[in-house]
Amino acid sequence: MAIVMCAVKVINRFKPQILMILLQICVASIYFLTEDMRLNPHIYVTYRHAAGSLVMFPFAYFLERKIRPKLTLSLFLEMFLLSLQGVSLTLNLYFASMRYVSPTFMTAIINTIPCTTFIIAVILRLEIVGVRSPRGIAKIVGTLTSLVGVIVIAFYKGPAVASLKGAPIHLGTNSVLENWLKGSILTLASRMLWSSFYITQAFTLKKYPAKLSLSAWMNGIGAAQSAVYTVIVQHKSASWC
């Protein structure tokens, strides 16, 4: 019993860190599950968030009945913009950039999202950094170290390592169209939207503290937005199967 109580205390103390690790495991698992899929990436984004919405809505409905605020028109419009910012537009730009830049460069740039989010939060005074405190120094050093690591990963050219089964998400072509300017703009735009999404979401949660419900709404709205975009760029109905 003492061991169980000790484990519970450790879990409660480090709950945010544990949840972040589990989130990364889930994100990595998505790539394994989609490894053999041949869907258009924009269609994949639509299906992915539609499925997420269907899964989340029952939990949100029953678990947050007492704390869920009334959904007003202004709040719905805010969710619409938040979904556009953090779901449909961000991910579609992300996958579109895969056609023009190397996966290494794209992945490295996307890994700067925590750094960019931190910098934006400091600029907006949502994050207070004490340059003389150990916590503040750790945040600054961690941010700089992350940026340096990303630059090294993006621009260092080491020996080629062949992939065993190809890319996790197939784009319908075996070669990347080299257009670094266009690809870099798309990747950077996706990164900035993703970072600002986390900041904007913090403001929305103050008005709508039902986190599960907000996630369900963003998944559903984002799937609808992505579907509209995908229909525009992908006219073949057979691609949806």
Rank of each mutant, 00 (worst) to 15 (best):
K165E: 12
Y156K: 12
R99V: 04
P103G: 04
M106Q: 11
T112V: 10
T145E: 07
L147W: 06
V150L: 09
V122K: 03
V101H: 03
P159N: 13
S146H: 05
T104P: 05
P114M: 03
G142Y: 02
R135C: 02
I151R: 08
V152H: 07
G158V: 04
V152C: 06
G142F: 00
S163K: 12
Y100A: 04
I140Y: 02
A121L: 00
C115S: 15
P159Q: 12
S163M: 15
V131N: 05
V161N: 12
I113P: 06
K139A: 08
A121S: 09
G142M: 03
C115H: 06
T107K: 00
L126P: 10
T117D: 08
I140D: 01
L144F: 13
R135Y: 02
S146D: 11
S163T: 15
I153R: 13
L124H: 08
I137L: 01
S102M: 10
A108E: 05
L164R: 15
T117N: 00
I128S: 15
N111I: 02
M106P: 03
L164Y: 10
G158F: 07
P103F: 02
N111R: 01
E127R: 05
M98F: 09
V129L: 02
V129K: 00
T112L: 08
A154D: 00
N111S: 09
K157C: 11
R125H: 07
I113E: 12
T145P: 04
P134T: 07
I137P: 03
N111G: 08
L124I: 15
V131F: 14
V152A: 09
G149Y: 01
V148Y: 09
F118L: 10
I123T: 07
V148C: 13
M106C: 11
L124K: 11
A108M: 07
A138K: 13
F155N: 15
R125G: 01
R125I: 01
I140H: 05
I119H: 04
T116F: 06
I140P: 02
T116I: 07
I110H: 12
F118G: 01
V161L: 11
S133G: 05
P114V: 04
T116S: 13
S163N: 14
F118D: 02
T104R: 07
R132L: 14
I109K: 09
I113V: 13
M98Q: 06
R125V: 01
M106A: 12
C115W: 03
R99I: 01
G149H: 03
K165A: 14
L124N: 13
V161C: 12
L124D: 05
V122W: 00
V122G: 06
V101G: 04
Y156S: 15
L126D: 09
F155W: 14
V150W: 10
